[in-house]
Design a protein around this nucleic acid. Structure first.
Length: 585
DNA sequence: GCTATGGATAGCCTAGCATCCCAATGCTA
């Protein structure tokens, strides 16, 4: 899929920006059309350029959300590399619009006014104006909005220049696979925080075992998307890619590959402790191997290094110097959960009440079932939003009942096909500000399971928010709490809650806490997973897919569970449907 | 600008909340 840079992403970005510009000018309906097209392009698995070459404008129009006008714009882009209308909009209001609306409280209209009055073009301008008190003087702005802008810029700075695992991992996997195809590459791995599966990634170190570095390096700097070569030598080459992401590659001889892996995977803190242990044993550990004097004792594999240092092998996800080394010495490391252990996914949205991406809820449920079967699952649970969430076309009691009946029908179809596979009937209900649930108990009772989550009014005091979630956990029908801390990576911090108290009540009530695998959430995070595990709380890993393809987010959730030391015993969706359901309230 | 049907023209994702200004708009979910 990423064999070359597809124009899908850049076109999607342009359409997204056009949508914002049009919204800025109060144009009706067009913004939504552009936005929808942008989203569909982003998730399109085929290269639009290939689509166009195969069937021209006509076939482009078969893509949902693409009609005559946008098909022509795509054609223009493929032929000329740009879109005239976009250039004109940009010329008229030369602002970094995507960057600016990332600030909470700033939308297209605010961008327009900020440019009109203060010539603010980018974040830097915005920060300067806010700091000198110029924003509060504008119409429709005040001291409060100025303060909020400053806070939001601060937050962005904190999380900046790191990339989401979910954005980077597919590309890195692709580059890894392409490197493996090279004749002179004997072994290839991507190290650093991506191997540890951290939720955000600063940069990547590729490690290659080869005795022909030149071919490797030449290939690396010629990768599509490379815009700058920081340095290119026989053992190390560094590049920057178009989106500002830095990648290094190191070539080592085969006999040092394991030592290189160990060294470049880190974390730094983990490695410092390992090297100290080596010194205590009269040894020296470096990226070239484990040595006694000049004699190399180990280096080709990581396993032999860990063993010679007197401990069990430590999985990359655990290497944070959080007690894993002590546990490895005592042979007390947990057996971590694996993606292949997962038997189903209970958090999938069908958009039953809406027509999503040109597909109806019925069709999406069927597609999700097929995707689940393709992933080797035994069940998939449909859990649409409920009525309070108007924007997501949340379902009311009546619609939930209709959906239930439809799923029953679909299940009998699978049984006819002599398949053990089952679609489960659930919902993701809203936990209201007072902790009540927005769906009547008798409707909840008819479902196979109920997920409940906070989707509104997230700025509450710690006491109130904790009470709110506790009340929901105590509801006899609520089985699972979705994304329990509410964070959105790079956008929004967790809401204020007393997590220890939540854990205590989860233990009392048997409420299951979700590990949401969406790369923007990964909530619970690694630390909270480990806390929950230690107290003996059961968790479930769910994709929170809004489209069938997103069910593949599961692997990020499993990685976070591993980072939180979770084993099969801590996660309920490793069990067949009957047993899994029996573990709910 | 797209999609659906009446094939040229409707109708399109809504509602609460904060802010700013004292009724309306813009933002966010």
């Amino acid at each position: 899929m990423y064999n070359k840079i597809m124009p899908n992403q850049s076109l999607s970005k342009i359409f997204h920006e056009i949508a914002l510009y049009l919204e800025m000018q109060n144009v009706d309906f067009k913004p939504q059309a552009y936005e929808k097209a942008a989203q569909n392009l982003e998730t399109l698995s085929e290269d639009v350029e290939d689509v166009y070459k195969k069937g021209g404008l006509e076939v482009l129009e078969e893509i949902p959300g693409i009609g005559k006008g946008l098909a022509e714009k795509i054609e223009e882009y493929i032929k000329t590399g740009k879109i005239k209308e976009y250039g004109e909009l940009k010329k008229k209001t030369p602002v970094e619009i995507a960057e600016l609306i990332a600030i909470e409280g700033v939308g297209p209209k605010a961008v327009r006014d900020l440019y009109k009055h203060l010539k603010i073009k980018n974040l830097e301008d915005l920060e300067k104006a806010a700091k000198t008190g110029k924003i509060r003087e504008l119409p429709r702005f005040g001291v409060k909005s100025e303060q909020k802008i400053l806070e939001s810029i601060e937050f962005l700075k904190k999380s900046n220049n790191r990339f989401l695992l979910g954005d980077i991992f597919p590309r890195v996997r692709n580059i890894k696979n392409r490197l493996r195809e090279l004749k002179s590459a004997e072994k290839v791995e991507a190290c650093g925080s991506i191997r540890r599966q951290k939720e955000t990634i600063g940069d990547v170190d590729f490690l290659v075992a080869s005795d022909n570095p030149k071919e490797i390096m030449d290939f690396f700097v010629s990768l599509p998307g490379v815009v700058k070569v920081w340095g290119k030598g026989a053992t190390k080459t560094s590049v920057r890619t178009r989106n500002g992401f830095d990648m290094d590659i190191r070539v080592v001889p085969k006999e040092s590959f394991g030592a290189g892996l160990q060294y470049f995977t880190g974390s730094k803190e983990h490695n410092i402790v390992l090297r100290k242990i080596a010194i205590d044993k009269g040894l020296k550990l470096s990226e070239y191997g484990l040595f006694r004097g000049a004699k190399m004792l180990a280096g080709e594999t990581e396993e032999e290094i860990y063993h010679l240092l007197g401990m069990d092998y430590i999985e990359p996800e655990l290497r944070e110097n959080q007690g894993e080394i002590e546990a490895a010495i005592k042979s007390k490391l947990p057996e971590l959960i694996e993606l292949s252990d997962i038997k189903g996914d209970l958090h999938c949205h069908s958009h039953w009440g809406a027509d999503a991406y040109g597909r109806t809820g019925k069709k999406i449920i069927e597609e999700m079932a097929k995707e689940a079967i393709a992933l080797g699952y035994e069940y998939v649970g449909i859990s649409d939003h409920t009525k309070f969430l108007h924007i997501e076309h949340g379902l009311d009691e009546k619609q939930l009942a209709e959906q239930r009946k439809y799923i029953d029908k679909l299940n009998s179809k699978f049984q006819i096909q002599n398949s053990k596979f089952k679609i489960l009937r659930g919902c993701e209900a809203n936990i209201m500000a007072d902790g009540s649930i927005d769906i009547k108990d008798e409707s909840l009772a008819k479902l196979d399971y109920v997920i409940a989550g906070v989707h509104s009014q997230m700025k509450m005091t710690k006491e109130k928010m904790t009470e709110r979630i506790i009340k929901a956990m105590k509801n006899p029908h609520v089985d699972i709490i979705s994304h329990p801390t509410g964070r959105i990576l790079k956008q929004r911090d967790e809401y204020e809650i007393d997590f220890d108290k939540i854990l205590t009540v989860a233990k009392e009530t048997g409420a299951i806490l979700e590990i949401n695998a969406n790369p923007y959430r990964l909530d619970l995070n690694d630390k909270n997973i480990r806390k929950a595990k230690e107290i003996g709380i059961k968790m479930i890993i769910n994709s929170d897919a809004h489209q069938p393809e997103q069910m593949r987010f599961m692997e990020y959730g499993v990685s976070q569970a591993r980072r939180g030391w979770a084993g099969k015993g801590d996660i309920i969706n490793v069990w067949p449907a009957d047993k899994m359901l029996s573990m709910l309230k």
